[in-house]
């Protein structure tokens, strides 16, 4: 049991209570719902069943999981490829300029998620900004169909979650002692080798944190597939949404939700392990107060 639970600081009580009430209790409720049967008119009939979990493995729903995982993994990979160089550049900028650069990286995040997503609709649709620009540049073919594709969904996910990924990687990079890279070079490693053998492994916790973050948020996302995918791509979040809001099948929605939560816990555990391992390889700069 973590120390803060064994001997909670009274100042943490409001936050703990908040967490228990609005995070732990709802999750437990969801967990319980998943073992009962659906009421014909919505709600729950309290007859025990494992059928909801069995249904998750129905090829139809398993297929939705796989599609979601593929879309989320692609978004994660692209985001990491964009975020790492960006975070690297920010961490190498003059120290007093870093806050303003980070501010710009995070700026889009301060506008409403829906508005940001709608902006992509305005850009990508067949009569949209990009197609009009192409036309005025002399392009005469059929307008490009960019919206309502899997690519549009991925673009939306990457765009919306990129700031977090940059922040996560930046926080790893900025704590990296520049002398380590110098030492590596002094010992004869080239820049590529230094990056691959020193910088990258030591910032892996940040990469893992950012990656898990965008993957988990993407796989459960239901707004972006609905808006940018035009509802043509069913992701697991849409399936959960439909179970609760149109199919009146709360128990099955709960079972799907539990699987998502389990997946998230698994990924967070892996991420924590990575962080621990990286911490183990790091020279003890200062003794942490245990």
């Amino acid at each position: 049991m973590p120390a803060f639970l064994r001997r909670p600081d009274p100042r943490a009580l409001p936050a703990l209570l908040w967490l228990v009430l609005f995070m732990v209790v709802p999750c437990l409720l969801l967990f319980a719902y998943a073992f009962f049967e659906r009421g014909t008119w919505g709600g729950i009939v309290y007859t025990f069943t494992l059928g909801n979990f069995a249904r998750v493995f129905d090829p139809l729903y398993a297929g939705v999981f796989l599609t979601s995982a593929r879309i989320a993994a692609t978004a994660t990979a692209i985001a990491l490829l964009i975020a790492y160089p960006a975070a690297y550049a920010i961490s190498r900028a003059p120290r007093r300029r870093q806050p303003i650069l980070l501010f710009f990286a995070v700026l889009p995040f301060w506008s409403n998620y829906l508005i940001r997503t709608y902006a992509w609709i305005v850009l990508l649709n067949r009569e949209g900004l990009i197609n009009s620009l192409l036309t005025s540049a002399g392009y005469t073919g059929e307008p490009l169909s960019m919206l309502y594709t899997e690519g549009a969904v991925i673009v939306g996910l990457v765009y919306n979650y990129l700031p977090f990924v940059i922040l996560a990687i930046y926080s790893s990079l900025s704590r990296l002692d520049p002398q380590l890279a110098e030492a590596s070079r002094d010992l004869g490693a080239g820049p590529v080798r230094t990056f691959l053998r020193v910088t990258l492994p030591m910032t892996l916790p940040g990469v893992a944190a950012g990656g898990v973050f965008i993957f988990v948020l993407s796989i459960g996302n239901f707004v972006t597939p609905a808006l940018l995918g035009g509802g043509r791509f069913q992701m697991i979040g849409n399936l959960v949404y439909d179970q609760f809001l149109t199919a009146n099948d709360w128990p099955f929605g709960a079972a799907l939700g539990m699987i998502l939560i389990l997946l998230m816990l698994l990924l967070l555990t892996i991420q924590a392990r990575l962080t621990d391992r990286a911490a183990g390889t790091r020279p003890p700069a200062r003794e942490e107060a245990a």
């Binding site: 139809l60 043509r232 069913q234 439909d242 179970q243 149109t246 199919a247 009146n248 099948d249």
Partner: peptide, 15 residues
């Protein structure tokens, strides 16, 4: 009672 059949059909279409 036909609601689950509709829901499933719709999920199959959307997936």
């Amino acid at each position: 009672d036909a609601q689950p059949a509709f829901s499933r059909a719709v999920s199959e279409i959307k997936a």
